[in-house]
Amino acid sequence: MEGLAPDLWPPIRLTIELATTTTIVLLIVGTPIAWWLARSQAWWKEAVATVVAMPIVLPPTVLGFYLLVALGPEGLGGALSGLTGRRTLAFTFEGLVIGSVIYSMPFVVQPIRNAFEAMGSRPLEVAATLRASPLRAFWTVVVPLARPGFLTAAVLGFAHTVGEFGVVLMIGGSVPGQTKVLSIAIYDYVETMQWREASLLSGGMALFAFVVLLAMALIEKRVARVGV
């Protein structure tokens, strides 16, 4: 849009806000799911795990399409946003958070689940014999033991949300400060032949991706050396 070209910061700030919020929500929502997936004996748990993992395989357009309808006035999102006097969750930051949580869920749940499974039930049994309440055992035993898993989950969830494009393009509406995240800003710049802005942001993204992946590799290496 007009006048926005010189201002590269709002999309960067917005992207960081979105990725941070999404990561926090995912750690809160994803941990119980990962716990259940790691410990449950239910025969249908792999079906749930599959549903969680589906965004990896589905084109973002499928999610974007469903979300556009679901967030709209005829969907659940419209009903929810009606409470705050709005008619749709599309084009809003909250809408993007919902989309990102679904889209990045597998990248958070899987590492945490792996960490829980690797831990086994032994530490909890020991904690129980020491009369630790389940909640206390979780915070003092499980969380420290699964810390590398949580760290991987947080980094991946954050990075994957930063790298989101298709879903945001379809439900975002490119609203400055609300939904115009980095990937959308780059798309707009390329579409309108503003190569300089596009390459600045793209270069930054490439650097970011490199740093994240390198950090991941180093974390894993350290974990392998120290042991879980």
């Binding site: 849009m1 556009l68 309808v69 967030l71 709209g72 006035p73 005829e74 419209g78 008619r87 749709t88 599309a90 084009f91 393009l169 439900i171 509406g173 490119s174 609203v175 798309y187 707009d188 579409e191």
Partner: peptide, 21 residues
């Protein structure tokens, strides 16, 4: 109040899906 589609088809679809009035 503006929401911006990447092209006119998307601008139409934002209205058609009911997300923009």
């Amino acid at each position: 109040k503006l929401v911006v589609g990447a092209n006119i088809t998307q601008a139409f679809q934002f209205v058609d899906s009911g997300n923009a009035e």
